[in-house]
Design a protein around this nucleic acid. Sequence first.
DNA 1: TAGATTGTTAATCGATTAACAATC
DNA 2: TAGATTGTTAATCGATTAACAATC
Lengths: 216, 216
Amino acid sequence: MRPDQRRVPEGVIERLPTYLNALVELRQDGVSTVASSRLGAMTGVNPAQLRRDLGYFGYLGRRGVGYDVPGLVDTIQRILGSDHTHRLALIGAGNLGSAIARYRGLRNHGFIVTAVFEDDLRKVGQRMGDLIIKHVDELERVVADQRIRIGVVAVPPEAAQSVTDRLVRAGIGVILNYAPVMVRVPDDVVLHNSDPVRELLHTLYYLSELEGVASS
Amino acid sequence: MRPDQRRVPEGVIERLPTYLNALVELRQDGVSTVASSRLGAMTGVNPAQLRRDLGYFGYLGRRGVGYDVPGLVDTIQRILGSDHTHRLALIGAGNLGSAIARYRGLRNHGFIVTAVFEDDLRKVGQRMGDLIIKHVDELERVVADQRIRIGVVAVPPEAAQSVTDRLVRAGIGVILNYAPVMVRVPDDVVLHNSDPVRELLHTLYYLSELEGVASS
DNA sequence: TAGATTGTTAATCGATTAACAATC
DNA sequence: TAGATTGTTAATCGATTAACAATC
């Protein structure tokens, strides 16, 4: 088993987008080469770990010099798959949906919302940015026609599971769920439940700890 | 050092909200007692790990019986600090801000948005739910008056760091940042950067892997 | 060449899991 | 009591870090 075929730990994959952010920043500033110590300081990662992480993908720095910034940007984008554009289907044209559609970070990383779906007939047919809001019944057809592989769920909690099931049936590969319920998907679909409450509860613990709240 | 004074690993804290969700569900269904095997199956956590996690807080189940559902709900809420209500300051009254203010999950877990701030004078003075949108210049005063300790940043990326700095100066303890930039805070402030793009990039990797895209 | 920084080995650390005596 | 399930020990696993020879 060659090193670049070894299974890559999930922690490594989670750190790649962080590296990418820092590297894009460096590239904008015209920096052509970066040492693991500097990139580590920028991202809060131990330099040894950073070198090891990059090693998983067989990416080579130059001893005594460091890593080539543009080259590493390209490499990480290729590893993550963000070196080409991805079409997103957005389900839910409420406040959250509008916020997502408008989100600049998405376009910068090659994500383009190419279809928006809604249940509410008053919204169907209206514009959202360059797109016309479609009825959710068209979901399967449009997803297939446009060969969309990523779905973003931004509907009320009651509707989240049924929308998710439709996306799965339509053959989508990745679902990002922003509804405040956990949804379930088959094993072959990649799911990310984004629950702000869970994040808040999690940080809350550290708040109490910081303030030294007695537990008795 | 007694076991309940040992430092609790971060992974444990991250799992607590998941346990809490499942337990609340069980409680709604009138289940009074649950074994680690069942709760583990519901949450995707190994039963042994679950028992160990609860052990960190000195919480005791009953051998041969399991864990008391309402008791465990109370205990986890107390550990996380969600056994009493928390006031939130929301900064940014755009689409994202509106979505957050309306988010039901928050109120269910004791989080109440009690102040909304905006930069845009056209929005200042308007209503959002029961609240009047305030100008961001009032932030420090209102946060101090209402003794708010949690701030949620939902402003455009350019404004995120300066808003964060104001929150820090106002003495806030926890900041949830939903703007698509990393912001920096002093060590004594708990920060959570919620970057949807990072989540997307991360899931994207698994999509390519699933589809067996060749890397050469 | 001399200085810098990598790639990688070995050591450390911590988290996860299996197993089982204790006990409800 | 017999069956069930905990709390906890010991074993495993994997990730992180320090250290340094290789090398630009």
